[in-house]
Computed example of a mutant assay.
Amino acid sequence: MKALVIDDSRVMRRIVASTLHPLGFETIEAGDGRAALDVLESGTVVDLCCIDWNMPVMDGLEFVGAVRANRAWRDVTLMMVTTESEHGQIVRALAAGAHEYVIKPFTADAIRDKLQLLGLVQQEEIA
């Protein structure tokens, strides 16, 4: 599976990517929503986008809207990974088409649990 990690912080992109790798994801990184759209427009197929909200050029909410406006990308799972924690912001992101919402700082378990809910990661067998 392939994930596009979108954040203007290189460090945060690496943290999210290093959380996704053990879960079986190959990752691609983009520094803002416009750069991420360029990746999708190039024909790269991704299963998941992890999206920061606050970025220059195109923010995460604008990116979600642009992806949802394109029928070719309707199967892409969108997960906000952001410091925006106000209930109203969460509602706006979900209403725009995001599937899940993770608030920074997050744990690897929180990301895994959300991806399990979305059906992108198998639940681990209880021994």
Rank of each mutant, 00 (worst) to 15 (best):
F106N: 03
G119P: 06
E84T: 00
E29K: 05
Y101G: 07
D109S: 11
V102N: 05
G65R: 15
D32P: 09
R10M: 08
T44G: 04
L37K: 07
V102D: 07
E124Q: 14
R10I: 13
L23I: 12
D7W: 02
V121D: 07
L115M: 09
E125P: 04
A127I: 08
K2D: 09
A35K: 12
M79D: 03
D52I: 02
K104V: 06
V57Q: 07
R13Y: 04
Q116I: 15
G97F: 05
T27L: 08
M55K: 00
A95F: 07
R74A: 11
V16M: 14
M58S: 03
V11T: 12
L37H: 07
L61C: 08
I90Y: 00
D113H: 13
V67E: 03
T44E: 15
M12P: 01
G119M: 06
R74S: 10
A96S: 12
K104E: 09
V45D: 08
G60C: 09
V91F: 03
L40P: 04
S85A: 10
V76H: 05
L23P: 01
P105W: 15
V91I: 10
M55L: 01
E26V: 05
V91Y: 01
A93C: 14
A95K: 05
G97R: 10
L37M: 15
G24Y: 11
T77N: 11
Q116N: 12
D7H: 02
R71F: 11
I111V: 15
V76L: 08
D47F: 03
D32S: 01
M80E: 05
G24I: 13
A30I: 08
C50L: 12
V76N: 04
K2M: 14
L48V: 06
Q122S: 10
A35S: 15
E84D: 15
D52N: 09
I6N: 10
A108R: 11
E124K: 11
L40M: 13
V45S: 09
V11L: 14
F63W: 03
V76C: 05
C50R: 00
A110P: 01
D47V: 00
L115C: 07
I6Y: 13
M1C: 06
I51Y: 06
R13D: 02
G24Q: 07
L4C: 05
A36Q: 08
V121E: 12
D113I: 03
G65T: 11
L78T: 04
V67N: 03
G31M: 10
T27G: 02
I28Y: 14
R34A: 13
V102P: 01
A36G: 13
T83F: 14
T83M: 13
D75E: 12
L40S: 04
A93F: 04
L94W: 13
V57F: 00
Q89L: 11
G119W: 15
D113C: 00
V11Q: 10
